[in-house]
Each structure stands twice: as C-alpha cells, then as structure tokens.
C-alpha cells in the first residue's frame, strides 16, 4: 500500500524536528525552511541525509534543493534568475511552486520557496517513481 500524504508529512516533520531542533508545532506545511524554521546551508544537506534514511530513497545532489544553478552566469543575472534559469529550475524541481516567485525572481527570494510542503511533494513524487515501498 502506498504511503499516505499524512504519513509522509509525519515522517518529514520528525526529520525536521531532529535536523533543525525545532518544536513539532512549528513544522506546518506552509512553514519555510530558512525563514520560519531557521535552516542554514549545512542543514539542507543534513535534511537530505535524514530523508534518505527515513524513506529509504536516494536523493541526488541538486534534486530536492538547487545545486549549481545559482553559480551559473547563464541562469543568474543582476541577482535575478534569467528566463533560462527559471526554466531550468522549474524543469528540475516539479515539487516546487514557482507561481509567486516568477513575478520577482530575485535569488534572495529563492529560499522562501522551500517549505515543509515542498519536501512532502518531493518525497511523494519520489516514492511514486520508485513504486512506493511499504510503510
């Protein structure tokens, strides 16, 4: 039986509580990882490591969170994502909702895109691709 959305959320919540030292109540679907939960750069790797263990999945670099897009001059100009950069991110990150970000694609706004729900979406897609292992 595939893992339910609630079950995925619970496990993601557990992961974030451990990785970021936050309280369970703080981990809501709309909470942003950096702004609301205080995640820093190394925490993103920590979260990836813990998700891999918790869900028995493999998360390649740059798949859940952006990797080298921001270092590429083709994708970033004057502190904003270029059309090519945005297209690249949208293509490689179907679990992220870019609708608001598109109106002002300032790279400083990028961290705000990553919410608890973003991780849940990613894990759900991943489990579906893998043929969803049992709980």
């Amino acid at each position: 039986m595939p893992m339910t959305e609630d079950k995925i959320f619970e496990k993601v919540k557990e992961t974030l509580v451990e990785a970021l030292g936050v309280d369970e109540e703080e981990v809501t679907p709309e909470a942003t990882l950096t702004g609301d939960l205080g995640a820093e750069s190394i925490d993103f790797l920590d979260i990836v490591f813990r998700l891999e263990k918790a869900f028995d999945i493999k998360i390649p670099p740059g798949e859940l969170f952006p990797d080298n897009v921001l270092n590429n001059p083709e994708y970033v100009a004057d502190g904003k994502l270029t059309e090519a950069g945005l297209a690249k991110l949208k293509e490689s990150m179907p679990h992220v909702d870019f609708s608001q970000f598109e109106q002002n694609p300032d790279v400083n706004n990028l961290p705000e895109l990553f919410k608890v729900q973003t991780i849940v979406n990613y894990v759900r897609n991943k489990l579906n691709q893998q043929g969803s292992p049992s709980e």
Partner: peptide
C-alpha cells in the same frame, strides 16, 4: 559514519 557523500558526511 552514518552518511558520506562528495559534499559532506554525518
């Protein structure tokens, strides 16, 4: 070692 990758280890 719990996890080790090119970028980091826990």
């Amino acid at each position: 070692i719990v996890t080790i990758t090119d970028q980091a280890a826990s």
